[in-house]
Design a protein around this nucleic acid. Sequence first.
DNA 1: TCCTTGACTCAGA
DNA 2: CTCTGAGCCAAGG
Length: 128
Amino acid sequence: MSPYSSPPDRLTFQALVWQQVRQIPAGKVATYGQIAALVGPPPGMSQEAYKAQGPRWVGGAMAACPEGVPWQRVINAQGKISLRGGSEIHQRELLEAEGVVFDDRGRVDLERYGWIPDSKDNQLSLWS
DNA sequence: TCCTTGACTCAGA
DNA sequence: CTCTGAGCCAAGG
């Protein structure tokens, strides 16, 4: 049981994550796993292992999110907000201000607000 | 140096 | 639908 790990090149990974997050338009949301899939596994890592670790790495990258990155548009696969601190409420407010609606259980309908990345923008420099 | 603590996801039960 | 367990550790106190 080693749920946590780190990518071979954390700094590069974080940079790629933020780059993808910046592509998410206002009013839309993406999941950690989705961002992880867009970034893709680091050189030499199996898709299998990445599938398990990637999402957490994205979470770690978000924890160190710099200015200018719409971190509030990244939520978990259940459509819920996952934050450790008390900024969870703040994130919901930011999203609602962008037009994202939460249901009575505090979840977002990913079918409607889920971000569909443009395949063209998907050709960004991944793992230079 | 040792111990704690994580912005997740998916398969099972 | 909800709850549990498993899945490359490393930065901070």
